[in-house]
Amino acid sequence: MSTTTVTAPRARLASYSRTFLDRHSSMMPTFAALLIFIALLIGAEMHFGNFLTPLNMSALLLNYAYLLILAVGMTFVIITGGIDLSVGSVMAFTGISCAKLLGEGYSAAVVIPAILLGGAAIGLLIGVLVQYFDVQPFIASLAGLFLARGLAFVVSLSSIRVENESVLWLQTTRWRFGEWYITPTGILALSVAAIGAFVLAFTRFGRTVYAVGGNEQSARLMGLNVARTKVLVYVISGVCGGLAGLVLTAYSGAGYPRNGIGTELDVIAAVVIGGTLLTGGTGYVLGSVIGVLVFATINTIIAYEGAEQAWTRIIIGLMLLMFIVVQRVIVVRSERRR
């Protein structure tokens, strides 16, 4: 009798953990990323002593708002099993277009929708190529990358300063809570993430995104609208690229056609670190947020340390490696289990 009373809670615990694993095994990498983020913060605080300040933490969001926005769009694309290499270039194109149009005297109320449409148009092109012409996402978005980068230089070969107050307001306004502060760009980025997470979890479109990533053919047989979904994720990523262009223009007070070269890699790295599988089917916007924070923290630590910026890329590379090896091990294990 006594043995059963001892084992019962333990058995229940085991069954809980099993239920949890059966339901949320795909969240494990995201938890790991969260742990790494916390470890990074604690480690940096212990090392520098003055790292974990409200000012620093607020700056994290301010400096990487554009990356967060791009990562949200990328998460949608990657969950469907695709990839969007064009995001950095789209950001540059929309950013420089924004600066140029504002410089020509158009009001922000016209310019902002226009650049979002521009981003959406490039996304639409990629999506249509992928969906209707069976072009691999890698190649289609590569065309998007070339196109947007070239167009950025067509708009202007050099940087253009922005004087428009409403755009600069996005960056210069600081709402303070004690020593913490947040800018409209930060709020914009967080809202994009919140909307993204909400859409993925609670709408049919969001669930179709996962379904397409799991198995496109099956999703189609289930009667889901695969074609629209696949086109739409690239449009979303394009719109995010446009928003990021706006945010980055506000942030730097200028549009510059060379912005965001290689940013697509940073975005992909952040998304993968956040636990989204590049094979598609699993991932969370929240994970991508954490991935961006990890990325941002590493960058900040290296700047703090005064070390060669080259280390950022090496560390991000190594971290990416660690993540994919761990993910691989998890996959191999679960295959074994069968």
Binding site: L265, I268, A310, R313, I314, I316, L318, I324, V325
Partner: peptide
Amino acid sequence: LDIQPIIATLVLMLAGRGVALLITDG
């Protein structure tokens, strides 16, 4: 290790230039 090629080579794509910069001292 059976890692997807795009991801596997992404690692070196990211880190490689960093290594090159270290070799040339930036």
